[in-house]
Amino acid sequence: MERQEGCKGCSASVQVSPEKLERLVEIATRGRETASEEVYRQRIAQCERCPGLQYGTTCQYCGCLVAVKARLLDSSCPYPFAPKWS
């Protein structure tokens, strides 16, 4: 299977500052059950090694910011061949 270049709806000019990313995580997780710090760090480590990570922040397979997706307890990895975490 050929690797898709780019993610759903993004361009290389899309960059999210650490401050904005932190704020987006805060907004997205408000009132929702979140993963423990240990689980979050494990998930992020998997995402950082994934070929689908783009711009250091975005999942190519679902278009989500990985910091948000990894923080939500009920999230799962969208990697199409074998999810890296659940």
Rank of each mutant, 00 (worst) to 15 (best):
residue 70 A to S: 15
residue 5 E to M: 08
residue 2 E to S: 14
residue 39 V to F: 08
residue 26 E to H: 08
residue 60 Q to W: 01
residue 46 Q to I: 04
residue 81 F to C: 08
residue 20 K to Y: 05
residue 78 P to N: 05
residue 58 T to L: 13
residue 8 K to W: 00
residue 33 E to I: 12
residue 11 S to R: 10
residue 39 V to Y: 01
residue 13 S to D: 13
residue 24 L to A: 01
residue 83 P to I: 08
residue 31 G to H: 02
residue 66 V to T: 11
residue 83 P to H: 02
residue 14 V to M: 01
residue 21 L to P: 05
residue 63 G to S: 06
residue 29 T to Q: 03
residue 77 C to A: 02
residue 10 C to R: 03
residue 24 L to N: 04
residue 1 M to I: 07
residue 26 E to M: 02
residue 7 C to H: 07
residue 24 L to T: 08
residue 59 C to G: 10
residue 37 E to W: 10
residue 45 A to N: 13
residue 67 A to R: 09
residue 34 T to H: 04
residue 24 L to G: 04
residue 29 T to F: 02
residue 2 E to Q: 11
residue 30 R to W: 06
residue 71 R to F: 08
residue 2 E to D: 12
residue 21 L to C: 09
residue 60 Q to A: 13
residue 68 V to I: 15
residue 7 C to A: 15
residue 58 T to H: 10
residue 24 L to W: 07
residue 83 P to N: 01
residue 54 Q to K: 15
residue 31 G to M: 07
residue 44 I to R: 01
residue 39 V to S: 11
residue 19 E to C: 07
residue 41 R to M: 14
residue 23 R to N: 09
residue 76 S to H: 14
residue 12 A to M: 10
residue 13 S to E: 15
residue 48 E to S: 13
residue 82 A to T: 06
residue 6 G to T: 00
residue 16 V to L: 05
residue 34 T to K: 04
residue 83 P to G: 06
residue 54 Q to M: 15
residue 78 P to T: 03
residue 57 T to Q: 09
residue 30 R to M: 09
residue 75 S to D: 04
residue 68 V to C: 10
residue 1 M to L: 12
residue 50 C to S: 12
residue 73 L to K: 15
residue 67 A to L: 09
residue 28 A to N: 01
residue 71 R to W: 00
residue 41 R to F: 05
residue 7 C to S: 13
residue 82 A to E: 15
residue 7 C to T: 08
residue 63 G to T: 03
residue 17 S to P: 07
residue 14 V to W: 04
residue 70 A to N: 11
residue 28 A to I: 06
residue 26 E to S: 13
residue 84 K to G: 06
residue 4 Q to P: 04
residue 2 E to P: 15
residue 27 I to R: 12
residue 63 G to Y: 06
residue 85 W to S: 00
residue 54 Q to S: 12
residue 62 C to E: 06
residue 43 R to E: 05
residue 60 Q to L: 10
residue 32 R to V: 07
residue 24 L to R: 00
residue 34 T to Y: 06
residue 9 G to M: 01
residue 54 Q to W: 12
residue 8 K to E: 02
residue 36 S to P: 08
residue 79 Y to T: 03
residue 81 F to Y: 15
residue 72 L to F: 02
residue 61 Y to C: 01
residue 28 A to G: 00
residue 55 Y to K: 14
residue 70 A to G: 05
residue 43 R to H: 07
residue 21 L to S: 04
residue 3 R to Y: 13
residue 86 S to Q: 15
residue 16 V to Y: 04
residue 37 E to S: 13
residue 85 W to L: 00
residue 20 K to T: 14
residue 19 E to Y: 05
residue 82 A to M: 13
residue 34 T to M: 06
residue 57 T to D: 13
residue 18 P to W: 02
residue 74 D to N: 15
residue 53 L to K: 11
residue 15 Q to N: 03
residue 47 C to K: 00
residue 53 L to R: 08
residue 70 A to T: 09
residue 2 E to N: 11
residue 52 G to M: 02
residue 45 A to M: 11
residue 1 M to R: 12
residue 69 K to L: 01
residue 71 R to V: 03
residue 38 E to Q: 14
residue 7 C to P: 03
residue 23 R to M: 09
residue 78 P to K: 00
residue 75 S to N: 09
residue 32 R to I: 08
residue 23 R to P: 03
residue 68 V to L: 06
residue 65 L to V: 05
residue 40 Y to L: 10
residue 4 Q to D: 00
residue 75 S to A: 12
residue 48 E to L: 15
residue 64 C to Q: 11
